[in-house]
Amino acid sequence: MWSWQRLVRPAAVVAALLVEPVLVGGPVAAAGCDQPPSAIYVPACGAWQGVAPDVQTLAEFESTIGQRAQIYHEFLTFQSHDSPTKPFPKPAAREAIDGGRMYLFNLKPRNSAGTIYPWADVASGGHDGELHALMANIAQWAATAGGRKVFLAFHHEPEDDVGAYGTAADYVAAYRHLVDLAVADGVRGSLIFVWDMTGYQRRVHEWNELYPGDGYVDWLGYDPYGGLCTGTGAPGGLATTLGGTGPGVDDSSEYRFYAWATGAGARDADGSVWAKPGDPGKPIMLAEWATKGADGGSEADQVQFYRDAERLVVEQGRYPQIKAFVHWQGSECNAFVGRPAAAQAYHDLVATPYFNPPLPYPAAGGQ
């Protein structure tokens, strides 16, 4: 176990971070943790922290929290890189990678106009032209990337889209087809596949139906929120949001994915109990997480949420299989733009040694 000390900055300094695009200081290295991550970027200790920026750019987010993100998250469609004239990755992602950050992208089966590509069509090869072009672009990037890899999540939160895109079996077939195509095109070694669910309690039974199998999944993911911008209730606490971690079945939390994923089992709304098939030890990623602030929840709610993360995740080690926390800096209620106390609380969390294990690669040129 390592020890760490909370970093405290005066309010005036935090306020300056909200407007100054220059980072103050660097990350605190994890004391006693000098082992590199695994081949699929699982840290040997602690966890990564990252961001899916929306209302801010990556640089603005990092300035707001006074800390570098380790994962940069984008949302793409099948048309994002479907020709040689659309090289992979896009400029913002390339800059993030070259700066030493890891890259996570969600690949949604639709075109840029929002037209749905049914999972069955993807599985049957109906969109192989676009996917082969994507893989060719990834291969071209990988040839000069020095062994770097990227995280790929195919159709995040598919529970929301069963019916509109097809059946759960169609989703599994489409997911497997994408992985098989990456193998056939020689880029599987450059991709780390993330299977990303919403994680809601009422969908426990769907996870077994949607799971492609351990051979097709490197990381598990889910997207827990302490409060949604559209929700009318008070924001939930962190333990309720992330789910139960005890040895028994989780029947108390709104999000029960953690207990499902780690083999303890999660209770569905009808009382049935489900657990992940296969390996219960796969790394878990919060591909999105946040809690609402101003719209329906106060800044104090956000502060408490991130302070609870320090207590439960860092100090108590209650979620050891969550190896990446990627913040959704999206809609105004979840972002902490203009909320210096919330930004300070988040900074204090991600500046701990727990969230600063050794990175898988340096910045381009070794900087």
Rank of each mutant, 00 (worst) to 15 (best):
V204D: 12
F61P: 06
E332C: 04
T241S: 08
P277C: 10
V22G: 09
G186F: 09
P283H: 05
W274Y: 15
Q329H: 15
A275V: 13
D308W: 09
A93E: 12
V187D: 07
E62I: 02
Y211N: 06
A182P: 10
G271V: 09
Y354Q: 04
R6P: 14
G186C: 09
L76D: 15
Y306M: 05
Q302C: 02
H127Y: 14
G147W: 09
V194D: 11
P277F: 10
G296S: 08
P10Q: 06
V313H: 04
N208A: 12
T352L: 08
E159F: 02
G365L: 10
F154W: 11
E20Q: 12
Q5A: 12
L242N: 04
A93W: 00
D196V: 08
F257A: 02
L18V: 01
A169S: 14
R6M: 13
S190Q: 11
A174H: 11
L131S: 02
E20R: 10
A290P: 09
N334K: 05
S80G: 12
A173G: 12
D128S: 11
L131W: 04
P118H: 08
Y175D: 04
T262C: 03
G46K: 02
N137S: 11
R203M: 13
E209F: 04
F151R: 01
R202M: 11
V217H: 05
V179M: 01
Y346S: 01
P224M: 00
E315F: 04
L134W: 08
G263D: 06
L134I: 09
Q344S: 15
H205P: 12
G226W: 01
T291Y: 02
L181W: 00
T232W: 13
P247D: 15
M285Y: 06
A234T: 15
A96Y: 05
G50T: 07
R318H: 08
N208V: 11
L152R: 03
D98T: 14
E310T: 06
A142F: 02
G227Q: 03
L134E: 05
V8E: 09
G246N: 09
A30Y: 13
Y361P: 03
A259H: 09
Y200H: 12
A264E: 06
E209Y: 07
A52P: 00
V172H: 06
D251Y: 11
F105C: 10
D295L: 14
G215L: 13
Q321G: 00
V24K: 03
S63K: 05
P21W: 02
Q56T: 03
G330I: 03
R318I: 04
Q70T: 09
M285R: 00
F193W: 13
A69D: 05
K276N: 03
I97G: 02
A31T: 13
T262G: 02
A123W: 00
Y72W: 07
P340T: 00
E159I: 01
A120H: 12
Y258L: 07
S38L: 13
G99V: 06
R110S: 12
A169E: 15
V350Y: 01
A123C: 03
F355I: 03
T64L: 14
N106C: 14
V303T: 04
L359S: 13
T57A: 07
